[in-house]
């Protein structure tokens, strides 16, 4: 475990200007064991990082801290000014139409800009709809458009597809891959899905009891094929770190 930590420090020292830098971040609620324990993490500009871990491993707390929703009580966190978050639920305002929801996220946004972003996520035809009339997949597309209209340097995705059916999830993953290549944001994807992490990310991090248990580069060409032997090997390794033995 100490090896992982020192490896992280090296990465941090080698990277000149990281998009996200976390140093010695700890978080504790009451007298319980710490949710985050002296965490170090660096994400380079434009880098796609997947964050895996069991429930209660500290994933959500880390993401909420990076999003500015939870305070930093111990340690240091620096993030870019322009950040966006896509949550597991779309969190669209039901009393605003889809395009109004998208435009709301950027102070000076025009309707044309919102329409352009909705077109990018394949939802331009629903821009006048009320959010309650959208399907789960459509709502998450709208949430992605809302996140991207802010032109974020750092995009956080908090299990964004966990509530979608399997086919929709695959389509949304392809969409995220396309959008990431177009927008070049640094991305932190919190997920339970090992295949999703290996399909999308440059690096997979496994969090366990508030510490980084594994920080693994994914040196695969894109688009990635599940049948690739390297993919298979990394998959087995990730699953073992998560305590699933295949």
């Amino acid at each position: 475990m100490t090896e992982t930590l020192s490896h992280n420090k090296e990465t941090y020292q080698n990277t000149s200007q990281p998009a996200v830098r976390v140093r010695g971040l700890s978080r504790r609620f009451g007298n319980n064991p710490p949710v985050l324990h002296g965490l170090d993490l660096t994400i380079a500009p434009g880098e796609f990082v997947a964050l895996l871990g069991h429930s209660g491993s500290g994933k959500s707390t880390l993401l909420r801290t990076l999003a500015g929703l939870d305070p930093v009580t111990e340690g240091e966190v620096s993030t870019p000014d322009e950040i966006s978050v896509v949550f597991q639920e779309s969190r669209l305002l039901p009393w605003k139409t889809v395009w109004e929801n998208v435009a709301l996220a950027q102070q000076s946004a025009t309707r044309a800009q919102a329409t352009r972003l909705l077109d990018e996520v394949g939802l331009a035809h629903r821009q006048d709809a009320w959010p309650l009339t959208l399907s789960g997949g459509e709502a998450q597309r709208a949430a992605l458009a809302r996140a991207l209209i802010r032109e974020p340097a750092f995009l956080m995705l908090d299990e964004p597809f966990a509530a979608l059916d399997a086919l929709t999830r695959l389509r949304m993953q392809a969409l995220v891959a396309t959008l990431w290549q177009r927008h070049h944001s640094a991305v932190l994807l919190v997920t339970h899905d090992v295949d999703e992490a290996l399909t999308l990310a440059d690096r997979a991090i496994v969090l366990d009891k508030g510490r980084i248990r594994l920080d693994m580069p994914i040196p695969l060409e894109r688009p990635r094929r599940h049948a690739d032997p390297v993919f298979e090997r990394l998959r087995t390794q990730l699953l073992e770190e998560l305590g699933v033995h295949t």
């Binding site: 394949g122 629903r126 597309r141």
Partner: peptide
């Protein structure tokens, strides 16, 4: 683009 398939809706 066909890369962006229609979803469930």
């Amino acid at each position: 683009p066909p890369l962006l398939p229609r979803d469930k809706a």
